[in-house]
Amino acid sequence: MSDLIDIRGVAHAYRTPSGPLPVLDGLDIAIPRGEFCAVVGPSGCGKSTLTRLVAGLMKPDKGEVRLDGAPIRGPRKNVGMAFQNPVLLEWRSILDNVILPLEIVAPSMPRKERVARAEELLAMVGLEGFEAKRPSELSGGMRQRASLCRAIVHKPDVLIMDEPFGALDNFTREDLWQTMRQLRAAEPFTAVLITHDLRESVYLGDQVVVLSGRPARTQYVMNVDLPDERPLDILYTPKVGEMLHVLRDQIKIAQGRGEGPGEGAAA
């Protein structure tokens, strides 16, 4: 019962003109409070559906998504979301973009406190001095940093991220991984990260969940046994190399290429 997020036997199908399209079937994920869960899997396997379920934006056909023991029945104030597209509002300054969730969640909070909270986070991600800028004046990496700040400004229990680093170049991405770890150390959220990047999943995750191809079920769960202090170099140690190898094999199986004779060996 110590799990904050508990996804049990979830199945879901979308209704399409050509009949139901099952995207999830047999999804089980348990995330203890404060943990960081990275979810990987083949393209189009229903990972984004998973984020919408946890956010309370939709309900599964079967199974249950529980938060702190209670089934999620709809949107709640204690989640934050970040996407591949930073979706910043172009007509607001960076500061006012970060404040946005507070306007919904804490309408009575004085402006001064909101600004202080936003400034604290922006400083933490290295955007000090950019508060008054418009999103269009920032680089892609900086916009994504601002987007992360907005996702956690209201101190949510759960941070849901759908490939937030997917559109960034490699070096910017690695910078953001480190920023993410700093945020984690400072803020109390429990995180669900959808990603296509195995190195990212290992570097950021406490556990990595591999989903099968569509309809997705939980195919494999890896506990990431690494210290909390993770310099980027850790990705080049033999231990992490082994972990990545295991995950890579699991992805091949998920893509339906691992079990066939000879096919998996070709790679």
Binding site: R52, A55, G56, L57, G74, P75, R76, K77, V79, G80, M81, F83, N85, V87, L89, E90, W91, L100, P101, E103, I104, V105, R150, A151, H154, I160
Partner: peptide, 29 residues
């Protein structure tokens, strides 16, 4: 309007009216 724009507020329980005033309307200007 990209669904993500709606979702960032909808996930917080914002009403349709709030989403319209804060996001949809200015974005359509």
């Amino acid at each position: 309007l990209e669904p993500e724009y709606r979702d960032i507020l909808r996930a917080l329980g914002a009403s349709r009216m709030t989403i319209f005033w804060k996001i949809a309307l200015p974005k359509t200007l």
